[in-house]
Design a protein around this nucleic acid. Structure first.
Length: 270
DNA sequence: AAATTCTCCTGAAGGC
DNA sequence: TGCCTTCAGGAGAATT
């Protein structure tokens, strides 16, 4: 499931090749994604030039003349730049460029989203309530401490709440809590300042490392098939129930929190 | 108001 | 081997 690092890796992989390219054709092969692809998407983006690609949380923002193409990859989405458009199953959207290449959105589970928005992109209903960027300076121990004082929710649920901090999904929430030594079920307001310090640092570390590794994995991403970087990432706890903790060898435990699989070491995380 | 549950969808994995 | 069931997951909507 693409989280911030996978989305950022995609952005970095695509941006150099797409900047300045004009879209000459748009093919919507399957409009039924999480929300329907706008029927007039072709008219909206056809003929327009891509000025650049930004990221906000897990959203990719393609700046075009007079508007923004907003893309969310859901949990199984990927964007690839290919030389020949030979659509395969689940290739739902094909944007053909003026250099003969094609940007293909593949999303088997169709939880993704493709939208067109005119006007300031941070005013879009899906973006305007997003919280801070976890890799920005404003997200730090102090921010985390302040924003956890008034909530008794489990800290993991809070980390995954996009309205507080944008981009952390299930995998990296699990990993950051493990790295920080904080138990996922801890009520947010029970975290000490010291723990917020460790957690904020852990979040930045885990995300930055994943982006680095993703960049390595996807070096030839734009030329060929893009596999999400997290397949390459060494995970400490996620998906490792019953296996030994990398730090103390105690078996990793699993529970469900907010309908999400949650993995932790009950010895290392308090 | 805050927290939980439901919902979309299909590939993978497990059970028989 | 193959069919059937269950599960996973992002996040908005609905419900408690």
């Amino acid at each position: 499931m693409p989280e911030l690092p996978e989305v950022e890796t995609t952005r970095r992989g695509l941006a150099p090749s797409l900047r300045g390219r004009r879209m000459v054709a748009v093919q919507v092969r399957q409009p039924r994604l999480r929300r329907p692809v706008p029927p007039d998407l072709g008219n909206r983006v056809g003929g327009k030039t891509i000025q650049g690609i930004e990221r906000r949380g897990k959203y990719l923002l393609f700046s075009l003349d007079g508007g923004t193409l907003i893309v969310h990859l859901g949990m199984s989405g990927s964007l690839r730049l290919v030389r020949r458009a030979t659509p395969e199953k689940h290739d739902h959207l094909i944007l053909s460029l003026d250099d003969g290449r094609h940007l293909v959105l593949r999303d088997p589970r169709r939880f993704g989203t493709v939208l067109w928005w005119q006007g300031p992109v941070d005013e879009h209903p899906l973006l305007r309530d997003l919280g801070v960027e976890p890799l920005e300076r404003e997200f730090d121990a102090d921010f985390l401490y302040r924003s956890t004082r008034s909530s008794r929710r489990p800290i993991k649920n809070l980390l995954m709440d996009q309205r507080l901090v944008a981009g952390i999904g299930n995998i990296y929430a699990n990993e950051a809590l493990f790295l920080a030594g904080v138990h996922p079920t801890r009520p947010a307001d029970s975290l000490e300042r010291e723990e917020c310090d460790r957690l904020a640092t852990a979040i930045k570390t885990v995300l930055a490392r994943a982006i680095d590794e993703g960049g390595t994995t996807l070096r030839d991403f734009v030329n060929d098939r893009g596999q999400p970087g997290y397949f390459q990432l060494t995970l400490g706890v996620y998906g490792r129930a019953g296996q030994p903790c990398p730090r103390c060898h105690t078996p990793i435990q699993r529970l469900t929190l907010g309908q999400r699989a949650t993995y932790f070491c009950h010895r290392c995380q308090k």
